[in-house]
């Protein structure tokens, strides 16, 4: 599976990383609202609500700050210190969402980095694993 570790073209990464931060976070929040939010078991996610989260896409140089509220995902300014940070490449994130990779495996191999509140991290991971996600919208990167 060397394939899945291929990095994004560096030129693309350079351009993406120079875009202003708010649009990508806002775009992500918008996408998550449409695709993920309706399926989230909010009752189980009390401890996650309003917590500043950071999602870093290492090969794109993207750092996105956002939070989950009862009404949906909201972008946050980057200066807000995150309670939980996730970092992986775009491919590995997609592989996780497509259920092609196991989060613990990526973690053991240091391809998924989780820092901050471990309990929240586990909650996020297990919730994403548990929801019955139809993922036709996720591009195949093979």
């Amino acid at each position: 599976m060397k394939e899945s570790r291929l990095a994004f073209p560096p030129a693309l990464a350079r351009i993406v990383s120079r875009l202003p931060q708010t649009p990508p976070a806002a775009v992500l929040a918008f996408a998550l609202d449409r695709l993920l939010f309706p399926r989230l078991p909010l009752a189980d996610l009390e401890t996650l609500l309003e917590q500043p989260l950071r999602i870093e896409v290492s090969d794109l140089g993207l750092r996105l700050a956002l939070t989950l509220t009862r009404q949906g995902f909201r972008p946050l300014p980057l200066y807000v210190a995150p309670r939980l940070t996730l970092r992986a490449t775009a491919r590995d994130y997609l592989a996780l969402l497509r259920r092609e990779e196991d989060a613990d495996t990526l973690f053991f191999q240091r391809r998924l980095v989780l820092s901050g509140d471990t309990e929240l991290g586990l909650l996020v991971k297990n919730t994403l694993d548990a929801i019955e996600l139809e993922v036709p919208f996720l591009p195949h990167l093979h």
Binding site: R99, E100, E101, D102, A103, D104, T105, D129
Partner: peptide
């Protein structure tokens, strides 16, 4: 049981 569908499948 703490792993994932990808793990169990493999």
């Amino acid at each position: 049981r703490q792993r994932s569908a990808a793990y169990v499948a493999q």
